[in-house]
């Protein structure tokens, strides 16, 4: 099926296996949520929320638990697409589109490129350090504090207001003009620094040899 596509042989197995895993996990969840919706226990936004919640939880856990780095990168894509669904539920369509474009398109692509360029053959397979139990305990305590803090507080009146594209752009470049300029300068500096950092500089190496 994938023989005509110009992808490496390992990739088609990855795609098929990933699709099967996604279907096996998400299919039952979707069916349960759909039956709940038909019975009337949950509303349609809640169905989308819990579906996105499942995708984010599985993607995030896959990102930090999978041993293969490429598999972890694909799990990261799933988690970030789920986050885009959350932005849609929060009535901010512009943020959802930016999330898909910047993360799903740019950031993960950069990460996979870096994986290709730093693929050392003699690296050990184990990608976790020996500090794993300690990290697990710290994370558990920290997450428990966050969740307890979120649940125990009485928040104010709830009101969701949709922000349209035109409104967003007008107010972004009118009220927040200075932060936009500062972020532009920051991006410029960061990308120049990345180029300077990743460039092979011959002078430095020749200096080192003469010392």
């Amino acid at each position: 099926m994938f023989e005509r596509l110009p992808v490496p042989a390992q990739f088609d197995r990855l795609i098929v296996a990933g699709g099967i895993v996604t279907g096996v996990i998400l299919g039952p969840v979707f069916l349960v949520l759909l039956s709940l919706l038909l019975v009337g226990r949950i509303s349609a936004p809640e169905l989308v929320f819990w579906l996105g919640f499942t995708v984010i939880v599985i993607g995030a856990l896959g990102t930090v638990l999978l041993q293969n780095i490429v598999h972890a990168a694909f799990a990261l894509i799933a988690a970030l697409i789920g986050v885009a669904a959350m932005y849609l539920l929060l009535a901010s369509e512009f943020l959802a589109l930016v999330q898909v474009l910047v993360y799903g398109g740019g950031v993960v692509l950069l990460i996979i490129f870096a994986l290709m360029m730093t693929n050392a053959q003699d690296d050990p397979i184990v990608t976790d350090g020996s500090q794993k139990p300690f990290a697990f305990i710290v994370t558990l305590l920290f997450g428990a504090v966050l969740v307890a803090a979120a649940v125990n507080v009485q928040w104010g009146a709830e009101s969701v207001s949709l922000i349209t594209f035109r409104d967003f752009g007008t107010r972004l470049f009118h009220d927040f003009m200075v932060p936009v300029i500062i972020v532009g300068v920051l991006l410029d500096i960061a990308l120049s620094g990345a180029i300077v950092n990743a460039r092979p500089n011959i002078e430095e190496h020749s200096e080192e040899t003469t010392q």
Binding site: T118, V126, D128, V151
Partner: peptide, 29 residues
């Protein structure tokens, strides 16, 4: 959807990311 659901989700994402930062060895991970 209650606000708490989103807060719990964001707390979960932050905690899972913290675990990854503490436990992983590869800089890209």
């Amino acid at each position: 959807i209650p606000l708490e659901n989103f807060l719990i989700l964001s707390g979960f994402l932050f905690a899972v990311g913290l675990y990854g930062v503490l436990a992983r060895r590869s800089a890209i991970l």
